[in-house]
Amino acid sequence: MLIVTCPWCGQREVTEFGYGGEAHIARPENPEQLSDEEWGDYVFFRKNPRGVHYERWVHTHGCRRWFNAVRHTVTDEFFGSYKPGEAPPTVPVSKG
């Protein structure tokens, strides 16, 4: 089973976690000023990369806290988990 690392609790099985999709999408400061295109883009459009993905997880059946992780979407290899506000870990160039 996929093993996910919670930055607070350590390594746990994926069934303990919920998934939050692409990370680092900031909510627009002034939603009322956005065009339909900009709003649709914020709500629905995603990078969905085949490769390195910065994503959000929540430790639902553990500490219930949100965090970010970097994972390769083909190999499922994790390059690290980090708390909100922390800088993401660097991904080895050969794996990018």
């Binding site: 994926v14 069934t15 998934y19 692409e22 969905n48 085949r50 993905h53 994972r71 979407t73 083909v74």
Partner: peptide, 13 residues
């Protein structure tokens, strides 16, 4: 699986 993937295989759970 609940997470984005191009692995073409899925979790045993």
């Amino acid at each position: 699986d609940p997470y984005n993937s191009y692995s073409q295989r899925g979790g045993f759970d």
